[in-house]
Design a protein around this nucleic acid. Structure first.
Length: 566
RNA sequence: UGGGGAGUCGUCUAACGGCAGGACAGCGGACUCUGGAUCCGUAUGUGGAGGUUCGAAUCCUCCCUCCCCAGCCA
């Protein structure tokens, strides 16, 4: 979307954030917009973050002169790591966004932040509290009972200054003192009950090393980082609504270089998966997922490896909208945007996931021929044709044959004629079983006059099925992914935690037979295996000599619905 | 039970006192050398009760439900 000249009058369906920005532009409160995406580098980005990324970078791109910063909110030395910084940058870039030179780290502001804290102390608005962690909790009161003042609350300014300085110098042990804002221990908003501003942590920080042993808290760091960078609209999720009062208090009580405002929107939830960092860690560490880039995970690394495209994810984020009501989006919408994108860009090929042998009994032994098949059947010139070899022995999909077919089954069955895609019309004349009475081979006769798939006599066949030549096809490992959980809300039934609703069939590895041209596929190449789904050559495990394909998403399967209804 | 937020088709989301619309999912049909794609059609919704108004999803009152806050995490 493009912002019109006059955002207020001409564009109507703006989400509430964009509406606020349009108003601020119209009233002259701001002449442009500066946003920021502020991840903490202590984990991997997931599709919920993608919503925030597209929102923040999106609105910035829509306003002339707008920009979006990538800022690492790294004020907790114990959990943060450079590995995450790199992974996050990779993911944001992959999503298609560029922060230019606007890469920032809250840890770069530590000295400024310290200065602001000193100013607060000097004004009598902050004090060093020496209560224990447990005491601080008790003194805070409850949501229905006011807290009580810390005995250190009236410590004189000079003493606070001295103590705070010595905290910085490392004279005290972890937990011995904290710096607190002096606000109101009876405030109905718990966040305003003399919130902690600094804590002592004798821990090396991944960027500042041992420069500091006191670290500022989120509520102090965030508004001031925003102000330092000149952020106009600080967009965060709903759980920070209570923090906004404190955000404003901080900005109002230090000589902040700017007056940013915080706005909150509802984070993304998806059904049949989990989004919290904590739960994701549990899945990885519990061995239920194989690393952060497991294709079943909603992490951007996982979705990337699964084969989802950044365009599809961006479209998805655009279509779910931005609002303040908690919601759970149906994962089917995500899958839809993925199919929609892939339908437009992936070449079609043939692959048989569960092979059943077919012998064309009237096709000469040893004969083979090459048939032309378009990569884009709806637009053949786009990529042209490839040659697919045909022979007497073929493989078709086991599910494309039924000995005793129900009505509406248009595929192969005894006596039935079907089209082999781009090849010939064939009719089933015999069925071979093994000693366990399982069908192991199907015999067909082909009509030589139907080469290419069209009958000169104009007769129609209802079904077209895919196939590969047995002597020419190559074997490939195919990983069929399904949702990780069987329950729409995996966190709902708490019995047995998450593992109770894990989908045992979330990964099914099969040995498929694919057309020989796929030997040339490179890691990351995407295809549609006709009638089956979209697949990607795995970035890590695929090689031309050992093809490995991940199923990105299955094709919509209306036969499945028909047969399910009986 | 203190405070802060939120309730519109199954799901997500529009409406800015004036015909409750879109998308996904569903259902039905057309077309098709992918049971894909595409096209057409269709059912389903304003949490509740009052009030204001010619007219209320929208404004007012009361009620109900859900989410967030008592980390030296962010």
């Amino acid at each position: 979307m493009v912002f019109p000249e006059d955002p207020l009058s001409s564009e109507k369906n703006l989400d509430f954030i964009r509406q606020i920005i349009a108003d601020d532009l119209a009233t002259g409160r701001h002449s442009s917009v500066v946003t920021r995406f502020p991840p903490e580098p202590n984990g991997y980005l997931h599709i919920g973050h993608a919503k925030s990324v597209t929102l923040n970078f999106g609105v910035a791109a829509e306003v002339p002169g707008g920009r979006c910063h990538l800022r690492f909110d790294d004020s907790n030395p114990e959990t943060e790591d450079m590995e995450y910084v790199e992974a996050i940058q990779r993911d944001v870039r992959w999503l298609g966004y560029d922060w230019g030179e606007h890469l920032y780290f809250a840890s770069d502001y530590f000295e400024d932040l310290y200065g602001f804290a000193v100013r607060l102390i000097e004004q009598g608005k902050a004090y060093v509290c020496s209560l224990s962690e447990e005491e601080i909790r008790r003194f805070r009161g409850t949501v229905t009972r006011a807290g009580t003042h810390s005995p250190y609350r009236e410590r004189p300014v000079h003493e606070n200054l001295d103590l705070f300085s010595r905290m910085r110098d490392g004279e005290f042990a972890d937990g011995q003192h904290v710096l607190r804002a002096k606000i109101d221990m009876a405030a109905p908003n718990m966040k305003m009950r003399d919130p902690l501003l600094y804590r002592i942590r004798h821990a090396p920080h991944y960027r500042t090393g041992n420069d500091w042993c006191i670290y500022p808290m989120y509520d102090f760091v965030h508004p001031l980082s925003d102000a330092i960078e000149g952020i106009t609209h600080s967009i965060c999720t709903l759980e920070f609504e209570n923090n906004r009062e404190l955000y404003d208090w901080i900005i109002d009580n230090v000589p902040a270089p700017a007056r940013p405002r915080q706005y909150e929107f509802a984070r993304l939830n998806l059904n049949y998966t989990v989004m919290s960092k904590r739960k994701l860690v549990d899945l990885v560490e519990g061995g239920h997922a194989q690393g952060w880039d497991d294709p079943r995970l909603p992490t951007l690394a996982g979705l990337r490896r699964r084969g989802y495209t950044p365009e599809a994810i961006r479209n998805f984020c655009e279509r779910i909208g931005v609002a303040k009501a908690n919601s759970v989006v149906d994962v089917a919408l995500l899958e839809h945007t993925v199919r929609d994108d892939l339908n437009a860009k992936t070449p079609r090929v043939m692959g048989v996931l569960d092979p059943l042998k077919v012998v064309i009994v009237n096709y000469p032994h040893g004969k083979e021929e090459e048939l032309d098949a378009p990569y884009f059947p709806d637009d053949p010139p786009r990529m042209g044709y490839r040659k697919v070899p045909f022979a007497r022995d073929l493989y078709i999909e086991r599910t494309d044959f039924m000995e005793d077919p129900p009505a509406k089954f248009f595929r192969l069955a005894p006596g039935r004629e079907v089209r082999l895609r781009w090849a010939y019309l064939v009719r089933c004349v015999d069925v071979i079983r093994n000693e366990r009475d399982e069908v192991v081979e199907v015999h067909c006769e082909y009509d030589p006059a139907t080469r290419g798939g069209d009958a000169p006599d104009g007769r129609r066949v209802k079904g077209t099925i895919h196939w590969v030549s047995a002597p020419h096809c190559i074997e490939a490992q195919v990983r069929l992914y399904d949702r990780l959980f069987t329950e729409a809300d995996p966190e709902a039934d708490s019995e047995g935690g998450l593992t109770g609703s894990l989908n045992p069939h979330s990964l099914d590895v099969v040995r498929a037979r694919v057309e020989p041209g796929l030997a040339g596929a490179l890691p990351g190449d995407r295809f549609q295996f006709e009638r089956t789904g979209y697949f990607i050559a795995d970035e890590k495990d695929h090689s031309p000599g050992k093809p490995v394909f991940n199923r990105i998403v299955a094709l919509r399967d209306s036969w499945k619905k028909i047969s399910a209804k009986g």
